[in-house]
């Protein structure tokens, strides 16, 4: 039928050289972008380390800030405050966020209301953090009379990170293959038994990634806590005036005023004297180290979990 088709292979024009060139171009571009990112980060850390080097001693993390004697200043209350806030934020937001994600993906059907809720959660993830600060000020500080406390700050931070935790946990849960759920249901498992034994363990690495990303964000945020009324600098530890048992002490810490690292850094940065710039740089290094430690804990949990899975 075809009129004298010379050869079928003539119809293919592989242009192999051109395709391979494209491949090389992309490879080089990708590598360059990657290198730029790493270089940027390295420069940042390098500059900060150079500026803050003189202050990076054990004394820096065990001393209180001081305006009169800046060379003796430290970040002890701010570091403590940051750790308390992130710990409490995690305790509040992780169960709530993972619970909401499990409900939305495993229990709630695909209803109009459900889709509306999910759309709103996605929107909440994009709301500026300062808005959460205002909400926290109105609801937790004033209305619930929690004052400018670690508890109020943590609740505010929980609101901030909840949408991100819910979204990432939902994605991790959605990535668990349907065949796994069917296998469990076919054995007469309830929804909760299926979720508890199979869905959550399989989704755990993804959930952890989301939790760590959002808690890291919480550690670095200054704006909401500024609004909630975190102290510019503290000359005593939160709850240090309280006596009595461990519980009293804990309550006192939770309800006392507090400082956090980002605000401490911000305050030092505002000072004109160069020594304060160096203090700020040292504070940044401490903040980065805290973030790194948090990430390592997450990686550790993930590895431990993977090892456990092979029984």
């Amino acid at each position: 039928m075809t009129s004298a088709a010379p050869s079928i292979s003539m119809l293919y024009q592989p242009r192999l050289a051109r395709r391979k060139a494209c491949n090389v171009v992309f490879y080089v571009t990708g590598a360059a972008v990657c290198a730029m990112t790493v270089a940027l980060l390295a420069t940042l850390i390098g500059v900060v380390l150079k500026d803050g080097w003189t202050f990076l001693t054990v004394r820096f993390v065990t001393s209180f800030p001081s305006r009169i004697e800046p060379e003796l200043a430290g970040v002890k209350p701010a570091l403590f405050g940051s750790l308390c806030v992130v710990l409490m934020t995690g305790v509040i937001s992780v169960p709530l966020g993972v619970g909401a994600a499990v409900y939305l993906s495993e229990y709630a059907g695909d209803s109009r209301l459900n889709r509306f809720i999910q759309l709103n959660i996605a929107n909440l993830a994009g709301v500026p953090s300062i808005v959460y600060g205002l909400l926290g000020l109105a609801v937790f500080v004033r209305w619930l009379h929690l004052g400018s406390s670690i508890l109020a700050g943590s609740l505010t931070m929980s609101l901030l990170v909840l949408p991100v935790i819910i979204i990432s946990a939902r994605e991790a849960i959605a990535a668990v293959p349907q065949s796994l759920r069917q296998a469990a249901y076919a054995l007469g498992a309830t929804r909760w038994q299926t979720v508890r034994a199979h869905v959550l363990p399989s989704a755990l690495p993804g959930i952890l990634t989301g939790v760590i990303l959002s808690l890291s964000r919480a550690v670095g945020e200054a704006a909401p806590l500024l609004i909630v009324g975190a102290a510019a600098f503290m000359l005593s530890m939160p709850g240090s005036q309280a006596g009595g048992g461990a519980w009293n002490k804990l309550v006192a810490i939770g309800t006392d005023n507090f400082a956090v690292l980002p605000i401490q850094i911000f305050n030092w940065c505002k000072e004109p004297d160069v020594v304060f710039q160096q203090l700020a740089a040292a504070g940044i290094v401490v903040l980065l180290a805290a973030l790194l430690a948090m990430n390592s804990v997450a990686v550790g949990i993930r590895l431990w979990h993977q090892r456990k899975r092979t029984w």
Binding site: S179, L180, Q182, A183, A186, S202, R309
Partner: peptide, 8 residues
Amino acid sequence: FQKPNPFP
């Protein structure tokens, strides 16, 4: 099931 689906 059609595809073997053991638990991990």
